[in-house]
């Protein structure tokens, strides 16, 4: 697939509201993957915070030992996700300009998705083409 060769900024652009049109699906896998990865990263980060907070509240030594090991695993997972996202160009922690540009495009995309009629009653595209029998 070509989408992983392109940088995400080439793929990410304000989307066309006609999502039924195949042409507008170009770059969709890249869009989905980067969004899912970001969600994954945020969940890992929240997990680290939750575990650290729990450690400050728990005294029981067995529980502390287990939570400490979970915390270490979670930190490793977070490192892996952020490294992968940086390598794929989905995340630019050292290039704030690039990151802000990406955020702006993502914000626009989210607003466009919010405005879409995602589950229309009729998804037929008849009428778009010459259909002599109708």
């Amino acid at each position: 697939m070509s989408y992983d060769r392109k940088s995400i900024n080439e793929i990410k652009r304000p989307m066309n509201s006609d999502y039924l049109e195949l042409e507008n699906a170009d770059g969709m896998p890249g869009l989905v993957d980067s969004t899912v990865a970001l969600d994954f990263l945020i969940a890992a980060k929240t997990g680290i915070r939750n575990l650290a907070f729990a450690l400050t509240e728990i005294e029981d030594s067995e529980a502390r030992a287990i939570i400490t090991s979970l915390l270490n695993e979670q930190i490793d997972l977070h490192t892996e996700i952020s490294d992968m996202m940086m390598q794929k160009g989905w995340f630019h922690p050292y290039n704030v300009k690039e990151q802000f540009k990406l955020d702006q495009i993502s914000a626009k995309t989210s607003l466009r998705i919010a405005g879409l009629e995602l589950f229309p009653g009729d998804t037929s595209r008849l009428g778009t083409f010459a259909t002599p029998n109708y």
Partner: peptide
């Protein structure tokens, strides 16, 4: 912690089906 982990596990297994990128 358990409720959070439950949601994370469910989400990871559901979302991984939607993802095309092999590494992710």
């Amino acid at each position: 912690l358990l409720t959070f982990k439950n949601v994370c596990a469910t989400k990871a297994v559901t979302m991984s089906k939607l993802v095309k990128d092999d590494e992710l």
